[in-house]
């Protein structure tokens, strides 16, 4: 596995334009032509309730499927000034949930301060924690206590309950270290009944296929993780891999791209289209720009409103904007649907 991001490799697919060209060069049915007949084109928000903030692309891992192209070599990190603008906006608007993502969000030097300030505003906070950050370095060892103290909901990727499937996607030894991190989270009460400390795991296919039903996979995970490691967790979010960035590179390099796109398109589900997460979410980049979702952010497709930066934040205009769609959106509408909170149907 390459230990470098596509960007550091100087890879063609590090460019957003190259990805969009690739996604559009085949004569696959256009995503908008699927939305047209079901009355969803233009795609509009329902109610903006989640503020997903990508606090930086730096990560201690270099997963094969990462749609952020994150890694230790990425230096893009949100500044405290940008965080202050986020806080100002959050204090003025009825947005219930703040979803922190990255990279490894905890690697941002202002992470803890930011979390504390958001909590002071009475918001629900989700941290997309990659688990291995917890045991990566001594300075992160007390993250479980910090999360618990502020009642942060944890959402963590564990693409499979077997070591080889997880390590092939996320890197050698990641499974073992993830198990250790989960046990540390359990130790402070995460994932345990009655504590109110939510620990949700994220499953995404470790290859070129669609995910199966959430309930079935959840039952497997619960049994396997508890029987083998005594680990408990709350929910399993099943996510479909979106064909952009490193996952797109993997699909092309492994000769699976066309078949995968065909499977996504064949599995287009109008019900899932109604529930796509961009309808209730705004995504913020490390440098303060606003996007419809984290995927559009990585394709550098900023929101279609007059101002696209937090400095020009206009809740009304954003609530009435037209969401920008393209061929990668098929990843959100296949089968039982896919969002940061798992399947949507």
């Amino acid at each position: 596995m390459s230990m470098k991001s596509l960007k550091a490799q100087g890879h063609e697919l590090a460019s957003e334009t190259a990805q969009l060209v690739k996604l559009n060069e085949h004569d696959f049915v256009k995503f908008k032509d699927k939305l047209d007949p079901i009355g969803l084109n233009p795609l509009k928000p329902t109610k903006i309730d989640i503020f997903q903030i990508n606090v930086g692309k730096m990560c201690n891992q270099v997963c094969k499927h990462c749609h952020v192209d994150a890694g230790p070599d990425r230096k893009e990190i949100m500044t405290r000034e940008t965080m202050e603008i986020c806080l100002d906006i959050l204090s003025k608007h009825d947005i219930g949930t703040v979803d922190l993502t990255g990279g490894a969000p905890e690697m941002n030097p202002h992470f803890r301060w930011f979390v504390e300030e958001i909590k002071k505003l009475g918001k629900h906070v989700i941290d997309r924690c990659n688990l291995t950050i917890i045991n990566a370095n001594k300075k992160y060892h007390d993250l479980p206590e910090f999360f618990a103290k502020h009642n942060i909901e944890i959402a963590s990727s564990l693409p499979h309950y077997t070591p080889n499937r997880t390590d092939r996607q996320r890197g050698d030894g990641v499974f073992e270290r993830s198990i250790d991190a989960l046990q540390r989270l359990n130790a402070v009460g995460y994932g345990k009944e009655g504590t109110g400390l939510l620990l949700n795991l994220v499953y995404n296919p470790t290859g070129a296929m669609l995910p199966g039903p959430q309930e079935v996979l959840k039952a497997d995970y619960k049994k396997q993780l508890f029987d083998k490691f005594g680990i408990e967790f709350n929910d399993l979010f099943v996510i479909t891999n979106i064909p952009i960035s490193r996952y797109l590179d993997y699909l092309i390099a492994s000769g699976n791209y066309e078949d995968y796109m065909t499977s996504l398109i064949d599995a287009f589900n109008p019900e899932a289209a109604k529930g796509v997460m961009c309808r209730n979410t705004l995504s913020i980049s490390w440098d303060g720009y606003i996007y419809d979702c984290d995927f559009n952010q990585m394709l550098d497709m900023k929101v279609k409103t007059n101002g696209t930066h937090l400095k020009d934040f206009d809740f009304e205009a954003l609530s009435n904007r037209e969401i920008i769609i393209d061929q990668h959106c098929y990843g959100c509408t296949a089968g039982l649907g896919s969002s940061c909170g798992g399947q949507t149907v």
């Binding site: 296929m209 199966g212 079935v216 996979l217």
Partner: peptide, 10 residues
């Protein structure tokens, strides 16, 4: 093969 893997088989 795809279907069994999608359904969570190892």
């Amino acid at each position: 093969t795809s279907d069994t893997i999608e359904k969570g088989c190892t």
